[in-house]
Amino acid sequence: MPLLKNEAIIKELYTRVEGEDTLPDRGAVLVDLARWQADRSALIARGSEIGVRLTSAEAPEAIADDLSQLSLVALEFPAFTDGRAYSYARLLRERYGFQGEVRAVGDVLLEQLHFMHRSGFDCFEFSSDQPEEDWIIAQADMKVWYQPTGDKRPTATQLRRR
């Protein structure tokens, strides 16, 4: 599935390691929360970048103290109507100060991209035959924002005060 980051398609750097599967010899890996918690030291000892993938039932509090070891947190949308990961992304960015990649995975659709970006996601794994065009469409619609989030877009209230 195409990965979109900073308005462009990027190459997948991480090898997805599901459940108990063996780790590749080298290179960045993306593991589940349970694997991270079980194999923490072994994963760090590999010396490569680590990503953790959280299901929508796993709040990022579980990895809040580990974030300095991680370069990617992937948050799942099992269905686009399950909005828990919006809160998780904001907490990662605004509460825990995570600077790495926050990736939206699962049921990721054009019509939700803007909300995701506003909440702190910066990478999107979504099935589209024209992801870059979709990104432009998704960002072009709305240009007025009322909520202060970590995305630094100026809110209407802030602009009024200028």
Binding site: D82, F115, S119, T157
Partner: peptide, 13 residues
């Protein structure tokens, strides 16, 4: 009203 309008975090409650 303004705060809740297209709130990015709370549109899929």
């Amino acid at each position: 009203r303004q705060w809740s309008s297209l709130h990015p975090e709370f549109s899929f409650l």
